[in-house]
Design a protein around this nucleic acid. Structure first.
Lengths: 332, 332
DNA sequence: CTGAAAGCGCTAACAA
DNA sequence: TTGTTAGCGCTTTCAG
């Protein structure tokens, strides 16, 4: 049997209430008593049972984190931001992978709520009405990290995807006119926003949208390789391509290079995210800096405020993004 | 207030014990009663409180996972293996980053035990006597994933690092004689093992250990870049270099290429781990396949057995590794 | 400043 | 097959 608060009380000749007070740093304890109790704790090797505490106090100091895939370099970085801030505020994290599968997502939300998490950070694809329904029933706060709820109902932390895509495309267009776009999976809100940014820039340059300049991938390296192939097959090759994730962009670059096409001399390539991969390729990748770590950190910080019922002025946070030009695009 | 088992009992006109039985799938319930209870549950939207259950049953169905850094591509893959198997056996995971900091590690072990996890998967650097002490006091099983305890006291899952390094070095030596080794941080057991493998191969080829052929990094891309620089500065450059992680190997390759040195024509490069990075570079990286996902999965599976008090024949599991030759080394 | 006592929501004997 | 009754280990009034 493990040693309980009761054992400590007996050992220290006080009541369990007093032990509870010193363990919880309640100031209403005479220093002498406090010392006595601490000694007893030490002697017995007492370690408070957080489960019992959770049941009695209705707080578990743990938050749930639902993530599409922790082995993705993108989400892992987000997770690190979340965990660091959680630790800072003395929370632990229950982490589960959803693979963006809606059923799994709903199921995970429920098991985590069953475990009485004090809050939830959710990352995924689109937020549907079903998701919102679950969040409303949650009785604990939820924040979204790098995830969009078009209804704006759920607190969230993101960047302005459309604007970021717009700027990236613009930069490419300032060099030449034929720029392609390699998107992520269709029909997700994020993708739509990015596509809108691309289209907007094209339009402003008096260019139409040429469907053969549009390729679709799944954010993976291999799908980038395929997109490159597709683009190279065109009668009139693009002069620049904007790719919606760094990992895919690496694929695109290698796909080009494997065919003897030089980057950026023959075709320029622009990425999105600025994961660590961006500097792990030659030429180094020009890309949109999406501050994943910060998005994770801010969404967790936001969650702590919500859990403390603090007032928050803005619940749908837009973090700044920026463009970094490296060697996969031509200098001015 | 949330709805409790008691509310359901009243709603269904049965005792809470019966509700508990149906919730837990106890077969000793008349089908009609079971149905009645299920309906009441549905009607009330009852969701069992896992914390109360944990307190009463002394099982939380959650396990702790201590990991150096979830944003590392290597550990993230391990974590995915752990989480998948945990999910399969109906456990959740509390995940925390230790940054290989011993104090943090010890602290995390304690908070997780305080949260009454049913077991612990630990990843880190070396296991010290202090670690072992904590594990012994744990009262729940612990397994190590890709982490060595020289005392063999703690159950673990690894590959044979020395042998893997030996094979990799041998392959390089079969092409030419001057092979360098870029190690991870000194003084860790894993690194010592790998170094021993390298030395053994050199010795068997009648070669001495030339200190200037030994570089040290920290597994990061940038430290690979630096190692390359150091190696290129040598009066007599190496003909091959064995690098103790893929990420560093990418750095080494780019460090070479940036100086106009061709890989593998001028210098061959061999990696370790076979992370996804290995195919995301040109030339693609020849490397040692360390099955990270499997190591995570097996260590979690081992933990479930230990938690169930099942007999396990081998508690220090060595998984097979293999060599994959790609384009950063010369074909035979 | 300290103690007594009533739960928190559930499981697990033990009876019936 | 079902109900009764103790707890699990801690927090939290409420008294004193």
């Amino acid at each position: 049997m493990n040693v309980t608060i009761y054992d400590v009380a007996r050992e220290a000749n006080v009541s369990m209430a007093t032990v509870s007070r010193v363990v919880n740093g309640n100031p209403n304890v005479k220093p002498a008593t406090r010392k006595k109790v601490h000694e007893a704790i030490e002697r017995l090797g007492y370690r408070p049972n957080a489960v019992a505490r959770g049941l009695a106090s209705k707080k578990t100091t743990t938050v749930g984190v639902i993530i599409p895939d922790i082995s993705s370099i993108f989400f892992a970085e987000l997770a690190r931001g979340i965990e660091d801030i959680a630790t800072m505020y003395n929370y632990n994290i229950i982490l589960s992978n959803s693979d963006q599968n809606k059923d799994k997502e709903i199921h995970l939300i429920n098991t985590m709520l069953g475990k009485q998490v004090d809050g939830l950070v959710f990352m995924g694809g689109d937020i549907t009405e079903d998701h919102r329904q679950e969040f409303r029933n949650a009785s604990v706060p939820v924040t979204l990290a790098a995830t969009l709820d078009e209804s704006m109902e759920t607190p969230s932390v993101n960047i302005d995807f459309e604007d970021a895509a717009y700027e990236a495309t613009n930069l490419l267009l300032s060099h030449s006119k034929r720029v392609a776009y390699v998107s992520g999976p269709d029909n997700t809100i994020v993708n739509t926003r990015k596509l809108n940014g691309y289209k907007k820039a094209m339009k402003e340059h008096g260019l139409g949208i040429d469907d053969e300049l549009l390729a679709t991938g799944d954010y993976s390296y291999d799908s980038g390789l395929e997109a490159a192939e597709q683009l190279l097959d065109l009668d009139e090759r693009p002069s620049g391509v904007f790719v919606s994730s760094d990992e895919m962009a690496l694929g695109v670059i290698h796909g080009f290079q494997d065919q003897g096409v030089r980057v950026p001399e023959d075709i320029e390539v622009f990425g999105f995210d600025n994961t660590r991969l961006a500097t792990m390729i030659r030429p180094t990748l020009s890309t949109v800096v999406q501050p994943m770590y910060d998005i994770g950190a801010v969404s967790m910080r936001l969650l702590t405020k919500l859990m403390n019922k603090e007032e928050v002025e803005e619940t749908n946070v837009i973090l700044p993004h920026r463009i970094v030009e490296r060697n996969s695009t031509n200098a001015e």
